[in-house]
Design a protein around this nucleic acid. Sequence first.
DNA 1: CTGTTAGCGCTTTCAG
DNA 2: CTGAAAGCGCTAACAG
Lengths: 352, 352
Amino acid sequence: MQKHKPTTIIDIAKALNVSPSTVSRALHDHPSISAETKRNVHELAKKFNYQPNLLALSLLNKKTGIIGIVVPEITGYFFATIINGVQDMVASAGYKLLICQSNESFEEEKKLIHEMTLLRVDGFLISPTFNTKTFDHFEKLKSAGIPLVIFDRDCPGFQADKVLVDSYHGAYQAVDYLVKAGCRHVAHIAGPIAIPTFKQRLDGYLDALQDNGLSINDSLIVYSSGFSSECGIDALTQLLDQNETLDGIFSVNDAVAIGAMHIIRERGLRIPQDISMVGFDDESYSCFFNPSLSSVWQPVYEVGMLSAKILLDHFSNSEQAEGYRYEVLKPELVIRSSSASPNPLDIPRVHL
Amino acid sequence: MQKHKPTTIIDIAKALNVSPSTVSRALHDHPSISAETKRNVHELAKKFNYQPNLLALSLLNKKTGIIGIVVPEITGYFFATIINGVQDMVASAGYKLLICQSNESFEEEKKLIHEMTLLRVDGFLISPTFNTKTFDHFEKLKSAGIPLVIFDRDCPGFQADKVLVDSYHGAYQAVDYLVKAGCRHVAHIAGPIAIPTFKQRLDGYLDALQDNGLSINDSLIVYSSGFSSECGIDALTQLLDQNETLDGIFSVNDAVAIGAMHIIRERGLRIPQDISMVGFDDESYSCFFNPSLSSVWQPVYEVGMLSAKILLDHFSNSEQAEGYRYEVLKPELVIRSSSASPNPLDIPRVHL
DNA sequence: CTGTTAGCGCTTTCAG
DNA sequence: CTGAAAGCGCTAACAG
């Protein structure tokens, strides 16, 4: 494994007794180069396995062709699928994608963005941490003229292009459905309401109840400490131990819902006969649970595609004067077997 | 959003009426620079928000500090967790990670590796596509002196550092367990045996049966067309339609197992009373299924850490003369409720 | 303690 | 049609 240093344009130039510029032009098929020289150059390039040095090019052109994406995590269907959407979009425009995880750490997020800036990525796609309350690091990008698009998680008070999902609408649909299906005591396993997304889901829950003429019972709202199935176990244990009447649950996400379902069964209750359950995210495995889990599907792939599209637009449209884009995509309730049906005859119960 | 071009070392030099090299030295805290100059330089650097240009550095040092990782996909627990292991390892050594997906496309894999080579990544971590039968693109890296480590999926005949999981051993454990639990007609939903990993799982299945004095019944082996739950549905439908006696199933992975379980229930059969099921991969959600799914856990995070470690060793140990590393990690059977227990009194049935 | 020079690999005027 | 020179941003000898 001897370290051949890569062939450069100069090596070829020397071997052919021409100047580097001639080689460069030949390689780029410049019109004013003799056919013969071109042939010779290409031949040698192949023979030496010449690979242009992108670093040198980037330095020269002041652009790397790399887009940086920062997500809280890649484990899990949600962000992984967004990344796929982004990937497909940017690849078709000839850009590469540098994927980084912040692990929900604000410090890490700052550090990553800083490092990627040093690397001179051409633009950013960012889904901020739950702990991101200040936006100086984003402002810095803006003032440095580096385009960025915020996706999935809003940054209240920070002006930028944004692509979000309407969590309120999704939650409203879910709870409205539960009530129409006959549930009168719908609980909510909520996320931290300091985060806009989860505040919206809570609001959707509250409004759906009120619009259906049901009163709000605060003890039916339990706050989950996290987003894993284990948290669902804790949340539901707490809820059931309060001995409140309970016939439906809207869970902040599917993972939590699944932990909760585990406890429901363990307590000898039936789903959906005793308690109906609706989750959020529509994880890929949710339809295979027993009973299969009703859930709010989010257009994740589209979020990725659209965010990337908006970023790419920045690269082509020199400096568009218009304000920031603010796109809110609609989620959709997917009804399966974990929730009682309003009309068993009309609504398909199993939706794979 | 006016495009301030980034401050360079020269801007600072001019403003201070010193030479660029002085600024460079001051920034690096070189001993032979007066305290005052250093102070001035640092001050201005902060004021101008100076950011060193990594591209220029990389060009100079002939190293980028970037490690490229190529995985078939990032959706799904398996590779996402490996990436986490890699990430943690390389970050602590000051390297960045460029993550790319081949989507199981051989062409894409070649293209990605080529592009990353142009970008001058310092080394590669590669889990090849199922369609990767030739290894010229890997050989090229070797002859260019770019270190690479193959992980999870073996490349028979290709010499390189490798970190693999012992699929044979995992499969053997699973099937041995099923037999000892009383299953006499164990089926196998197999993957494409052209791929070493799945061949090994099949072999483990076969050997475990034989070692237990059971005969092999070819019609109990069904080949799945893919690795999703949908494929599990197809596979099991096919299997059950053959009307073979059947009391246990070892599935090539959890996703397929879950699709299969769906069909088993749909046919009115009980798990594990009528049919026991064991999967492979131990997906994060497998313990929350109903019944919870027994599965073969793989040390995924460790695979990531170790692969990265081996690659990093290449960077420090100049040119170690020793041959290639070949590490095979052991998986472990996790017993839950989807499989009958050999001795209900001794073995915990639910393992969260 | 500081400046000058050269060069990493490549492109691109400007001159022949 | 081709070459020489300058420069992208930075560092590392080599001289003062």
